[in-house]
């Protein structure tokens, strides 16, 4: 053993498999995966947790998370979660979805699962782009932002406005906890992990959906270095998608608490 147990200060959670991540260097997905799995590990609920992978960059999330998982058709993860949770009310059920999956093709499933108050957690990674298919415009692409289908920038007069679906679901009576985070600095990672923990703890209360958006970069799709992508995200994404709690314990937070 290279490190003796008394000197071990950090180890990868056994709830992440040893499979190399398929994500681009600099992408936030790996960190989000690991934080969710650390929460499941720390709560000791591996045997009672069922996750749902989407269509998108994280389609193979089940290769990396060492738990029972289902892979959903594009956008339908909240419907799968509903079917599972209704049959297994004592299990912990979460979906892991991207912006195209959750806020475009799956809008109906997202809104209605949130409005019914399904007792599940939804993790929503928003990088403002369709990463897996090669960087096309997403429902969350910012005004003026370039993508492979908006090569001259998103013209909202022609292509419509970006959708703040997290603010939208916060208004629904079925959401209990709605919060927006990022994982691009150690402080933000810790804040996200606390939120993820709350999303799982809330399922014991049977009070409705815990919905956590993670604003993330897509340095490949944005055609930037990872460091530049994070800087661009801070300068452009965060003003439009401000970090912080939106709804806590079923009550709207009047002013978003800033998570710097």
């Amino acid at each position: 053993m290279l490190v003796s147990p008394e000197n071990l200060v950090y180890t990868k959670t056994p709830l992440m498999t040893d499979k190399p991540l398929s994500y681009c260097p600099g992408c936030g997905h790996g960190t989000v995966h690991r934080m969710i799995m650390e929460v499941v590990d720390e709560m000791g609920i591996q045997a009672d947790t069922i996750g749902i992978a989407p269509v998108g960059c994280s389609v193979l999330a089940y290769e990396f998370m060492n738990i029972d998982m289902q892979q959903a058709a594009h956008g339908r993860a909240p419907a799968l979660a509903t079917g599972i949770k209704r049959c297994w009310p004592d299990k912990y059920v979460f979906t892991y979805q991207g912006d195209g999956d959750l806020a475009a093709i799956g809008t109906a499933e997202t809104i209605h699962a949130c409005n019914r108050g399904e007792n599940i957690a939804i993790f929503f990674v928003n990088n403002g782009i369709y990463g897996m298919t090669g960087g096309q415009m997403a429902p969350t692409t910012l005004p003026g932002m370039r993508s492979s289908t908006t090569p001259y920038g998103r013209d909202v007069a022609l292509m419509g406005n970006p959708l703040k679906i997290t603010e939208l679901v916060a208004m629904l009576p079925g959401t209990f906890y709605v919060s927006r985070h990022s994982v691009h600095t150690p402080l933000n990672v810790r804040k996200f992990k606390r939120a993820a923990r709350m999303a799982f703890e809330n399922q014991k209360l049977n009070k409705g959906v815990s919905f956590i958006e993670i604003v993330s970069n897509c340095n490949s799709g944005w055609k930037m270095s990872p460091v530049d992508a994070n800087k661009w995200m801070e300068d452009n994404m965060f003003p439009f998608y401000p970090l912080g709690d939106i709804k806590v314990n079923g009550e709207m937070v009047s002013k978003p608490t800033k998570a710097e």
């Binding site: 289902q70 959903a72 419907a79 799968l80 599972i84 499933e109 809104i111 209605h112």
Partner: peptide, 22 residues
Amino acid sequence: MVLLQAESEVAAINMVYGAAGT
């Protein structure tokens, strides 16, 4: 037995998928 009226046929069949997968 669970009975749930879904928001669409698309959602209904995917609820079936989730529950069948368990």
